[in-house]
Amino acid sequence: MAPAAPVPAPALFLRGAVALSGRFPLLAGVDLEVAPGEVVLVEGPNGAGKTSLLRVCAGLVPLASGTVRVLGGDPADVRTGVRRRIGLLGHASHLYDDLTVAENLRFAVRAAGAPVDGIGPACERVGLVGRLLRTPAGKLSAGQRRRVALAALVARRPELWLLDEPHAGLDASARGVLGVLVAEAAAAGSTVVVASHEPELVAPLATRAVTVAGGRVVADRATPRPVSTAGTGVADVA
């Protein structure tokens, strides 16, 4: 009898995860498991806990109780090195206004310990070319800042992508590129968790959809379509 194939450790594991802001509960006992390579859509109304869930997974918010394991380690413990394998595209772009786009990207990629040779191709993918690279980040529009943050994420090549409302502020072309990048990351084996109020943009890529409400996971269902680039605007940008 052939030995059973080993079950891969989950990329993301939360059990009874409770996070607080003062006495206010951000997460009220989240149970969630995400396998490597999955693309998970996180839905829910404003204040449901989607952003907090992603920030807990990124190690930015510590747990008051419960367990979180990301890529096998505790993301809140900087010594584990797990954070360098996580990429978070959140509401902020983490850009220094006085540095140019190129300098910001070089710093972000080098700080994460990734090779800088990925910066050029990443910039081309998101449309950051020419004079824009020499522009101080303080002079960029919100959408352009978002593109820079996306380029940094792509150049870092993280194993876990945490995307919080990733389409916000992006034009149609950039939204299409984002869809392609997420599909490519998943195809390359990365795990992707996307919190979005625009599920129609993410659902075509997602293998699962998780609904969060009141700081808890209240629904968890497989999506009908497999990972693909269909419906993501790929055709628009190709």
Binding site: A92, S93, H94, Y96
Partner: peptide, 19 residues
């Protein structure tokens, strides 16, 4: 202040830099 704008302090933390 340099690390306060655009949540760059979080960016440093996310990069996994040694504190």
């Amino acid at each position: 202040a340099v690390e306060a704008g655009d949540a760059t302090r979080d960016g440093l933390r996310l990069a996994g830099l040694d504190p």
